[in-house]
Lab assay of single mutants.
Amino acid sequence: EHQTACDSYWTSVHPEYWTKRHVWEWLQFCCDQYKLDTNCISFCNFNISGLQLCSMTQEEFVEAAGLCGEYLYFILQNIRTQG
Rank of each mutant, 00 (worst) to 15 (best):
F74I: 12
G66V: 01
E63D: 13
K35Y: 04
S49G: 06
C30Y: 01
T57A: 07
F61G: 01
F74N: 15
Q58T: 05
H2R: 13
C44H: 12
K35P: 05
T38W: 11
K20C: 06
E60Y: 05
N39M: 05
I48A: 03
E1A: 05
V23L: 00
W24H: 13
C44Y: 10
W18T: 06
Q3M: 14
A5D: 14
C40V: 09
C31A: 06
E16H: 14
T57F: 03
E59L: 07
V23Q: 04
H22I: 00
E60G: 05
G83Q: 06
T11I: 07
W24T: 13
Q77S: 07
S49F: 04
I79A: 08
F29P: 06
T38P: 13
L72G: 02
A65S: 09
I41C: 03
S55L: 07
F46R: 03
Y34W: 06
Q58K: 14
Y73K: 00
F43W: 14
A64H: 09
W26E: 01
E70C: 05
I79K: 07
E60L: 02
Q82P: 07
A5C: 12
G83L: 08
D37M: 01
E25M: 04
L27M: 02
Q58M: 09
P15T: 02
F46C: 01
T81Q: 13
Q33Y: 09
C30M: 07
Y34I: 00
R80T: 06
G69A: 02
Q52V: 07
Q33L: 04
F43A: 09
E70D: 10
W18L: 02
L36F: 13
E63M: 08
A65K: 01
L36D: 05
I75W: 08
L67H: 15
Y73E: 02
H22F: 03
V13Q: 05
H2T: 11
Y71C: 14
T38I: 14
L51N: 13
E60I: 00
K20E: 12
W18R: 01
V23W: 04
Y34F: 10
E25A: 13
N39W: 00
Q3Y: 08
Q33N: 14
L76G: 03
G69E: 01
I75Y: 13
Q82E: 13
F29M: 06
I41A: 04
T57E: 12
T57R: 07
S42Y: 00
Q28F: 00
T81W: 06
H14E: 12
I79V: 10
G69R: 01
F29T: 14
E63V: 06
Q82H: 13
L36T: 03
S12P: 04
Q82G: 12
Q28C: 07
D32E: 14
C68Y: 12
T57P: 05
Q28N: 14
L67E: 15
A64D: 08
L53W: 00
K35D: 10
E25K: 11
N78R: 13
Q28E: 09
A65R: 01
T81R: 13
C40F: 07
F46H: 03
C44V: 12
H22E: 12
L67V: 13
K35H: 08
G50P: 15
P15H: 00
F46G: 05
S49R: 05
L76M: 01
C68G: 12
E59M: 07
A5P: 13
N45E: 11
W26C: 01
S55C: 06
V62A: 07
Q33S: 12
F43Q: 14
I75V: 12
H14W: 02
A64T: 08
T57I: 01
C68A: 13
V62L: 05
T4M: 12
A65C: 12
M56T: 04
F61T: 00
N39I: 00
T4S: 14
Q33K: 15
E25Y: 10
L67D: 15
F43Y: 11
Q28V: 08
L76R: 02
R21S: 07
L53E: 02
G69W: 03
K35M: 11
Y71A: 15
L72H: 03
E60D: 14
E60C: 04
I48R: 05
P15I: 00
K20I: 10
L67F: 11
D37R: 06
E60H: 09
L51Y: 13
F43L: 10
Y34C: 04
C40T: 12
L53M: 03
L36V: 04
H2G: 12
T38K: 15
L53Q: 04
W18G: 01
Q58N: 03
S55K: 11
H2A: 12
W18D: 05
C54W: 01
F29V: 05
Y17I: 12
Q33I: 06
A65Y: 10
W24K: 14
D7G: 14
I75N: 15
E63T: 12
S49N: 14
F29Y: 15
Q3P: 09
G69V: 02
P15Q: 02
I79S: 06
I75S: 15
H22Q: 10
T19R: 01
W26R: 03
C31H: 09
W10R: 14
C44T: 14
S55P: 02
H14S: 11
C44F: 08
Q52H: 05
E25W: 05
E59F: 07
E16K: 14
T38D: 06
T19D: 07
L72R: 02
T4L: 12
L72N: 00
Q77C: 08
G83D: 11
Q52I: 07
S49C: 11
L51T: 13
Y71M: 14
S42D: 14
T38C: 08
Q52E: 13
S49K: 04
I79D: 03
N47I: 02
W24G: 10
S55H: 10
Y73V: 02
F74C: 14
I79N: 07
T81G: 13
T19Y: 03
E59P: 08
E59I: 10
A65T: 11
C30S: 08
E59A: 10
Y71L: 13
W24N: 14
L72F: 03
E25T: 06
Q58L: 12
T81F: 06
E1G: 05
Y34V: 02
I48E: 02
V62C: 11
I48S: 02
C54N: 00
L53K: 02
C68R: 07
T19L: 00
N47M: 08
N39G: 10
S49T: 14
S42K: 14
Q28W: 09
H22G: 05
I41E: 05
T57L: 04
Q28Y: 08
F61R: 03
A64Q: 07
C30N: 06
E63K: 13
V23T: 02
I41W: 04
